[in-house]
């Protein structure tokens, strides 16, 4: 019932700008943020509990759990000890953020470049008609997106060069396909929302 009422209110507030509907979106968002802020302790304590159990029981890969506990305390203690200005430049927390967290995060992100290469290699193998079309389209789009594409086709009239072909593929077939997916997603959202609001779908609440 609570899900149904909240869902209906969210739908109504989109069409009714009048008070109290106008404020309900903000109220519910605030409540969610408050609940989520408290819930983060559940998560943090769960992480510490599982890691501590691994270390104490000398379970498999307990060394990683020790690193988690050490890293957690290393960032949390300076954060609390730094008071309200814990993020200001020059604090230990800020130093850790800038010189430990940011490079580590960037390193993980950088791995993506290698994974793109390996995934592209597999995806572009011409195994069947669809994969061959994908390979041809990808070849022209990638070549059209770099200067050498236009250098190679410089003898062609403007509008027929590789960059133009790449733009055409992106603006028409690609955009059309993506919009079809978007329409499907929008309709799927409506259907799912109705199932949840009406209580037909209750799996996320632990129900049938």
């Amino acid at each position: 019932m609570i899900t149904g009422i909240v869902g209906a209110v969210f739908v109504l507030q989109y069409f009714i700008p009048h008070w109290p509907f106008s404020k309900m979106n903000a109220w519910f968002s605030d409540w969610f943020s408050i609940v989520a802020a408290f819930a983060i302790w559940l998560g943090a304590l769960n992480l510490m509990k599982i890691s501590a159990q691994k270390v104490v029981g000398r379970k498999e890969d307990w060394g990683y759990a020790l690193v988690i506990i050490f890293s957690f305390l290393l960032i949390v203690i300076p954060g609390f000890a730094g008071g309200q200005g814990y993020r200001e430049a020059g604090t230990f927390f800020s130093w850790l953020y800038e010189w430990a967290y940011t490079p580590l995060s960037s390193t993980m992100f950088a791995i993506l470049a290698f994974f793109v290469a390996s995934a592209s290699y597999r995806a572009f193998r011409a195994r069947n008609l669809e994969a061959s079309l994908l390979l041809i389209a990808a070849f022209f789009v990638m070549l059209g997106r770099v200067p050498v594409g236009d250098i190679l086709t410089g003898f062609m009239p403007v509008g027929w060069r590789l960059s133009d072909l790449a733009s055409w593929v992106m603006n028409y077939p690609q955009a059309a396909g993506q919009r079809a997916i978007m329409i499907g997603i929008a309709l799927g959202l409506v259907s799912t929302s109705l199932r949840i609001i009406l209580g037909i779908e209750r799996s996320h609440l632990g129900g049938e």
Partner: peptide, 30 residues
């Protein structure tokens, strides 16, 4: 599962008529 298939998955897997009906309803939108 492309887009809408993700949202359809729960209804599809449950096989319940009520849930499958909701999938059919969104076909009208399509």
């Amino acid at each position: 599962l492309i887009g809408e298939e993700l949202f359809a998955a729960s209804a599809y897997l449950s096989g319940e008529p009520k849930q499958l009906g909701s999938l059919k309803g969104q076909d009208v939108g399509k």
